Deep mutational scan, measured.
Amino acid sequence: MQIFVKTLTGKTITSEVEPSDTIENVKAKIQDKEGIPPDQQRLIFAGKQLEDGRTLSDYNIQKESTLHLVLR
């Protein structure tokens, strides 16, 4: 499924993921596309910071959901 990751600069990254993918996994995909190390990434969805060990389905993230990427 496709999800969108919006950066603070307003850029939107499209990523191909599975509901069973972990947040860590998603951060790795963002690193592949943007070159941002996962340890600098914080992903936010519905006002919550997403934890690395959890999966997209844990957070009820569905296709075409938009996550927000904040850098630390």
Rank of each mutant, 00 (worst) to 15 (best):
S65Q: 08
I3A: 00
D21Y: 08
T55Y: 05
Q40A: 10
Q49A: 10
L8M: 13
E64W: 14
P38N: 07
D52A: 05
I44K: 04
Q40N: 09
D32K: 13
S57T: 09
S65H: 07
E64L: 12
A28S: 11
D58V: 03
K33Y: 08
E24T: 08
D39M: 09
P19L: 10
Q41E: 02
I36G: 03
I30S: 02
Q41F: 15
K11G: 06
K48V: 14
D21W: 13
E16S: 10
D39L: 08
L50W: 02
L56P: 00
D58C: 03
R54L: 11
T66P: 02
E51I: 08
Q62Y: 10
K6R: 11
T9F: 13
E51H: 08
T9S: 13
A28V: 11
Q41V: 12
Q31P: 03
Q49M: 13
D32A: 14
K27S: 02
D39N: 11
L43D: 01
A28H: 12
D32P: 03
L50R: 00
V5G: 00
Q41S: 06
K48H: 12
R72W: 13
G47S: 04
K29F: 11
T9Y: 13
K6I: 14
S20T: 13
K11C: 07
K27M: 13
T9W: 15
F4Q: 05
D39I: 09
E16Q: 12
Q62I: 12
L67N: 00
S57P: 02
E16T: 12
L50A: 00
K11Y: 13
G47N: 06
Y59P: 01
R42H: 13
E18D: 12
D58E: 11
H68S: 08
E24I: 10
A46Y: 09
H68N: 08
V26W: 01
V5N: 01
T12F: 09
L43M: 04
I30A: 03
P38L: 15
A46G: 12
N60T: 04
S15G: 06
T55C: 04
T7L: 15
K48S: 08
D21E: 09
T22P: 05
S20Q: 10
L43S: 00
S57V: 07
V26F: 05
D52H: 05
N60C: 06
T14L: 12
T9D: 13
P19A: 08
T9Q: 13
T7S: 07
R42D: 11
E18R: 14
E51R: 08
K27H: 02
L67R: 00
T7A: 05
L8D: 13
K6W: 06
T9M: 10
E24R: 14
T66Q: 06
D52I: 04
P38I: 15
T9N: 13
N25C: 09
G47M: 04
T9P: 04
D52K: 04
P37Y: 05
I3M: 02
S65P: 02
K6C: 11
I30F: 03
K48F: 11
V17T: 03
H68I: 15
E16D: 11
L43E: 02
D21S: 08
D52Q: 03
Q41M: 15
V26L: 14
K11S: 07
E34S: 14
K63N: 15
R54A: 08
I23H: 01
V17L: 05
N60M: 08
T22I: 04
S57K: 12
V5R: 00
V26R: 01
P37M: 08
L56I: 10
H68W: 15
T55M: 10
I44P: 01
N25Y: 11
E51T: 06
A46I: 06
Q62N: 10
V70F: 13
Q2E: 09
I13F: 14
D58M: 05
T9C: 13
T7R: 08
N25A: 14
K63C: 07
G47I: 02
P19C: 06
E51P: 02
D58P: 00
I44T: 09
I36S: 04
E24S: 12
E51G: 04
T12V: 14
K33D: 06
V70L: 13
E64R: 07
F45H: 06
I13A: 02
L67I: 13
D39G: 10
V17D: 01
E34H: 11
Q62G: 12
T9I: 07
P19H: 07
G35M: 05
Q2I: 15
F45D: 01
Q62D: 09
L8Y: 13
Q41C: 08
I13W: 12
K27D: 01
T66I: 13
D21K: 02
K33R: 09
L67F: 04
K33G: 07
S57I: 08
R72C: 11
S20V: 05
T66H: 13
L8P: 15
K29E: 04
K11Q: 09
V17W: 05
M1S: 03
D32C: 08
K63I: 06
M1Y: 14
V70A: 08
V5I: 15
S20N: 11
P19W: 08
S57A: 13
K6V: 15
I61C: 00
V70N: 05
K6M: 10
N60E: 07
K63A: 15
K6D: 04
V17F: 12
S57N: 10
P37L: 07
T55D: 02
L43K: 00
S57H: 10
A46C: 09
A28P: 00
Q2N: 11
K11V: 09
L69E: 01
R54W: 10
L8F: 13
T12E: 04
T22R: 08
D58Q: 07
L50N: 01
T66A: 04
S20W: 14
V26M: 05
I3W: 00
G47F: 05
T55S: 10
E16L: 13
R54Y: 12
V17H: 12
L8V: 13
S65F: 09
T22D: 03
T7Y: 14
G53Q: 12
Q31D: 05
P19G: 07
T22M: 06
V70M: 10
G10V: 01
I30H: 02
A28R: 15
K11M: 10
I3H: 02
K27G: 01
L43C: 01
E24C: 07
L69G: 00
E24Y: 15
K48Y: 10
S15A: 15
L71G: 07
I3Y: 00
T66R: 05
T55V: 06
P19S: 09
K27R: 05
S65N: 10
L8I: 12
P38V: 15
D58Y: 15
E34C: 15
G53L: 07
G10R: 03
S65E: 07
Q62L: 10
A46F: 09
D39V: 08
T14S: 09
A28T: 10
L56Y: 01
S20R: 08
N25R: 13
E34K: 05
E16I: 14
E18W: 13
D21R: 00
I30Y: 02
T7H: 06
G53C: 07
N25E: 12
Q40V: 11
N25P: 01
K29T: 07
Q49V: 15
Q2D: 06
D58K: 02
G47K: 04
Q2H: 11
Q41R: 02
D32L: 14
A46N: 15
V17Y: 06
G35Q: 05
D58W: 12
L69D: 00
T22V: 04
K27L: 12
E16V: 12
K33E: 09
L43Y: 04
P19V: 07
T7W: 14
L56F: 04
D52V: 05
R54Q: 09
P19K: 07
I23Q: 01
K6H: 10
T66F: 07
M1R: 02
L56T: 02
F45K: 02
Q40S: 09
A28D: 06
K33W: 08
D39W: 14
I44L: 12
D21A: 06
E34L: 15
